[in-house]
Amino acid sequence: MSVIIDVTGLPDERIVFAPSPLAELGAALHVLSEPAHHPWLHGWTTTTLAGLAPDLADRLAQADVLWRSTRSDVLLPIGPRPGDTLAEELDILDRLDDERYVRAALEINCSSDYDSEGPSPLADPAARRRALDRAAARGPRRLEFARSLLADPPAVRAWIRRLLEDCDQAFFADLWQRTHGALAADARHKTELLRHRGLAGALAASSPAIALEEDARGRRVVVDKLTDGATTATDPAAGEGLVLVPTALGRPHLVVLHAPHRRPVVQYPVASPDLRAGPGSVELMQRRLEALAHPVRVRLCRSLARAPYTTGELADGLGITAPEVSRHLKVLRQAGLLTARRHGRYVQYRLDVTVVARLGGDFLEAVLR
């Protein structure tokens, strides 16, 4: 499974490697929301969370739908290249129309709607109900956020901008000062590789999960993901180009923006993890490996590693029946790989990433990619 970006006919000068303060802030917010995904950043996470003012921490909890389970496209660069400052990128984001902003903000990774240009939840009652149902399954704060955004997009957009600016003042400006130099150096190195070794060489140096395929049909950037998707880097509505953004915090995630009529963006990690395997019985290890041997259960793990989901949501996202999903969830739970939590009439399941980390870094990176 992979995300394919058609780059046929795209000149190399339209391929940009550059750091993005907005994208790095998005990565930082995800780390703070999901520290178990990034155990090697435990020191920074603990210190940063301890230093947050209660009001800021509460507002981050209200808005974490934008970065907890999957990185919202509003947190990735929009133009032909990222802005030099967070303020510049936020100004560019402000120029995005309400419909595209709301679609990106309410994106649910488990949904199959991402690649489609279906009805807008701002105008279509059925699309609005689906968006609110998905939010409700994730708890009252998510539902409140979705209702507010759908009711008054300009007000919520202004609230989000203030929130990101407050994060910059509280912790991100210092983080960006310490990491920007290394990210800029990495981007310059990849640009030199692009110039001297071509796109295939630059992509191979960015991540082993990114490759260039060339044949009689054209050229395609193929990103190895546990999901399928496709877009083009030559859409005249978006402006031709491909943006590749290094991140110091993102590993093990490999984030790909491939929404319709948006210039594609790939955020690739440059940091190295330090996972340490824990001891476990041979019998338990065998049971867990057998549970993960089925391709459907691997796809379930990919979704459940990012956020809790209900059986119905998983069935809808994978295109299979709810009873079949339940059978696979039972196997994963019996292997001790899932947790379950009830929220009202919903039961949400989630992958225990700390357990998965002990199985091996390669599998953890695959499901979180």
Rank of each mutant, 00 (worst) to 15 (best):
I5Y: 01
E13I: 08
R14D: 11
S20N: 09
P21K: 00
A27N: 06
L29R: 04
V31D: 01
L32H: 05
P35K: 11
A36E: 12
L41I: 09
L41E: 00
L49F: 04
L52I: 07
L52K: 11
D58L: 02
D58S: 11
R59W: 06
Q62E: 14
L66C: 10
S72Y: 06
I78A: 14
R81N: 04
G83M: 09
D84N: 14
L90D: 00
R100M: 09
E107D: 15
A126V: 14
A127T: 10
A127M: 09
D133W: 05
D133R: 15
A136E: 15
G139P: 10
L150P: 02
L150V: 00
D152F: 08
W159K: 09
W159E: 15
R162F: 03
D166S: 13
D168L: 05
D174E: 15
W176I: 12
G181I: 10
A182G: 10
E192N: 07
E192V: 06
L194P: 06
G198T: 06
L203Q: 01
A209L: 15
L212W: 04
D215I: 08
D215E: 00
G218I: 05
R219N: 07
T227P: 00
A233T: 07
L242R: 05
V245C: 02
L254K: 00
V256W: 02
L257W: 12
A259C: 09
P260V: 08
H261W: 11
R262C: 08
R263H: 04
R263S: 04
Y268G: 01
A271C: 14
D274F: 02
L275F: 07
R276L: 14
G278T: 15
V282L: 15
M285K: 09
M285S: 13
A291I: 03
R299I: 03
G312D: 13
A315D: 04
E324A: 13
V325C: 11
L329A: 05
L332Q: 05
R341H: 13
Q348K: 07
Y349I: 04
D352V: 06
V353K: 05
V355Q: 06
V356E: 03
L359F: 00
A366R: 14
A366Q: 14
V367C: 05
